[in-house]
């Protein structure tokens, strides 16, 4: 009965040292040495201060920005220290109410736009931190952003294209637009135009 206790305890200790300490230390060491930017969260730094991560979405409600996907994290949207989806089931009335309110908010921000709203723009992401929207969702918002920023739509479209990622290696995943990077680029453009004047 107790004959196997000794090998159990010792192998537990030894393999814990190996898999619980040596292994993560090795991976951390190599990662920090050759790809520290990625190992530390792909942070976007502006004027020496981090303004976000290119992998983590932020919330936008000002109509002059492109809006991100809805986020169900608490207590505020896009809380990157408490990731979460909504977990609302497909027939839950609360889900339908939420979607209705989001459609309404988009319509209120852009009264002339009567197009059907791309689904990703009114449904909460799985992590609550989705950094992307679909190209369709960007196109849906494009005229609004261009108008409020007094920019020609083509200039905005060009920026959107610059921040659109195609399928990886042409095959994997889905095409997507990085919202935070796009909005930061819009602000940069606005600043540059201001300085030019």
């Amino acid at each position: 009965m107790f004959k196997e206790l000794r090998p159990a305890v010792i192998s537990f200790l030894l393999l814990t040292l190996l898999t619980g300490f040596a292994y993560p230390a090795l991976v951390t060491g190599i990662s920090q040495a050759i790809m520290s930017d990625k190992a530390n969260g792909s942070l976007i730094v502006k004027d020496g201060k981090p303004v976000g991560s290119s992998l983590i979405g932020q919330s936008f409600s000002d109509p002059k920005y492109f809006w991100s996907r809805p986020s169900a994290t608490g207590p505020m949207a896009n809380n990157a220290s408490a990731s979460s989806g909504s977990n609302l089931g497909p027939t839950n009335p609360a889900l339908l109410d939420a979607v209705k309110a989001r459609v309404q908010a988009l319509r209120d921000a852009d009264p002339g736009n009567t197009k059907a709203v791309p689904v990703d723009l009114v449904t909460a992401s799985g992590s609550g931190l989705d950094p992307h929207i679909s190209p369709a969702a960007a196109e849906y918002q494009l005229a609004r952003v261009a108008r409020l920023r007094s920019m020609p739509p083509e200039a905005v479209r060009k920026l959107v294209a610059e921040h659109t990622e195609e399928r990886q290696f042409g095959i994997l995943g889905e095409p997507r637009v990085n919202v935070l990077e796009l909005n930061l680029a819009l602000d940069e453009t606005a600043k540059a135009r201001l300085q030019a004047k």
Partner: peptide
């Protein structure tokens, strides 16, 4: 330009297929 489908609780980079 979009994966469509039931996107509640899904991430854009994975879409419906993945």
């Amino acid at each position: 330009t979009q994966s469509g489908g039931n996107m509640e609780g899904k991430e854009m980079r994975f879409g419906i297929v993945n």
